[in-house]
Amino acid sequence: MLFTVNKSPFTAGNLKSCLRYVTKESPILLYEDGVYGAMAGTALEPEMKETLKTNRVYALREDLKARGVANTIEGIQLVDYAGFVDLVAEHNICPWI
């Protein structure tokens, strides 16, 4: 089950509530404003690092670039649109939007 999050974690509770339900094998994909959750140095970084111990976390490169976010948390994997499509094709989707 791939969880997708597209809201900023600083205005919406989507990412936090998503993290309550992800099980170990479930990857998380951040896109649109969700990619702010992938940025290094935020108040959310400790929780994201904890999540990275058990789950793969992806962020959409195009959305990061559009928002000028170059410094992402170590361990978060960047994917382009083609990678996004691969992930969606490989998993059932749980859109946490």
Binding site: M1, R20, Y21, V22, T23, S26, N92, I93, C94, P95, W96, I97
Partner: peptide
Amino acid sequence: DKETIANVIREQDVVLP
């Protein structure tokens, strides 16, 4: 509890938010 919900989510074919 949230663990029950996590398991429910995991066994779905389609999740609609």
